[in-house]
């Protein structure tokens, strides 16, 4: 098959198929900014996998221990921060005892930010001031997540003799009654990496603690098998999952705002796919008419 190369200006089909990518960039950028400024809202239907997470947290009693793992770096902030904010606020307002930790190497600062903001928000809007050590703790980071997760199954004190601020674990009142996963009612892991696998395999698989996942859109579709086999009890996927959770907890935030923009940004992508394909088909037809190989 011989490639026929023609000189001269491109015809319409070829132009359709090969715009400079910077035009694509510009259109996408302008549409996103414009959509955000106009504050468009999008419809949002709740999926069962997100509702399962919400129902689980909602069903816990005051004083139950919930572990929320903030296992993401700043690069996954867009999708995962809103989930962490919504879940932690729900949990703290319900006066659950919340253990947070991070197994991602730049995650400590992310977790600190969420915890600090949520404590402020709960004190302001829910008339209850969560106290460090009594109502919530932040255990911080330890390397080698698979082993850390296994270690906590024996005793939290193996990987975490101290919390993030180097305070001994036993001097935090709420941790005195917590030895391992047996005292934790559930784990919600919010992550964009394969830490999720380790939580499913090591925490749920080996120690039987209930696990739910909050994932970036990139990996969300891959974890539905674990949801169906009940190895995880719920799953939040990407910004839509985060927005659904915000809606369920009646706590609108960045994710719900962003979903309105998503609608228009998606239309841009779909439009470009269609343009590319129209060019492709016109070109195919033209080649056929000229009798070239297609």
């Amino acid at each position: 098959m011989e490639e026929v190369k023609r000189q001269g200006p491109k015809n319409f089909n070829e132009k359709l198929m090969s715009m400079d990518r910077r035009w694509v960039f510009l259109v996408l950028g302008v549409v996103v900014i414009a959509a955000l400024l106009t504050g468009i809202k999008a419809p949002l239907s709740i999926t069962q996998e997100v509702r399962d997470v919400y129902n689980f947290v909602e069903g816990l009693k005051e004083g139950d221990n919930l572990l929320v793992a903030i296992d993401y770096d700043p690069n996954a902030k867009a999708e995962l921060h809103p989930m962490a904010y919504a879940i932690l606020e729900q949990a703290m307002a319900k006066k659950l005892k919340v253990i947070t930790l991070t197994l991602s190497q730049n995650g400590a600062g992310m977790a600190e930010q969420v915890v600090r903001d949520v404590v402020d928000s709960v004190s302001t809007y829910h008339g209850f001031s969560p106290e460090y050590g009594k109502d919530y703790v932040f255990l911080g980071y330890r390397p080698y997540y698979a082993l850390v997760i296994l270690g906590m199954g024996q005793n939290f004190r193996i990987p975490y003799p101290t919390d993030y601020y180097t305070t001994p674990l036993d001097s935090l009142p709420m941790m005195r009654r917590i030895q391992n996963y047996n005292q934790v009612t559930g784990v919600i892991d919010i992550t964009g990496s394969n830490v999720a696998d380790a939580w499913v395999a090591n925490a749920n698989g080996r120690y039987g603690v209930k696990v739910a996942l909050g994932l970036t859109g990139v990996s969300a579709a891959d974890y539905y098998p674990f949801y169906q086999s009940k190895q995880i009890f719920g799953l939040m996927g990407g910004m839509k999952g985060a927005a659904e959770y915000e809606k369920l907890t009646d706590n609108p935030g960045l994710a719900m705002e962003a979903m309105g923009v998503q609608t228009y940004a998606h239309l841009v992508i779909i439009a470009f796919i269609l343009i590319g394909n129209i060019g492709f088909f016109l070109d195919k037809r033209a080649r056929k008419q000229r009798g070239e190989a297609v």
């Binding site: 996408l28 700043p74 867009a78 590319g276």
Partner: peptide, 20 residues
């Protein structure tokens, strides 16, 4: 870090247009 990753939004748009 967040912005470096956000460049991917543009690349997926251009990849979808060219390769899909």
């Amino acid at each position: 870090q967040a912005t470096m990753f956000s460049l991917l939004a543009f690349y997926i748009a251009s990849a979808a247009y060219r390769a899909f």
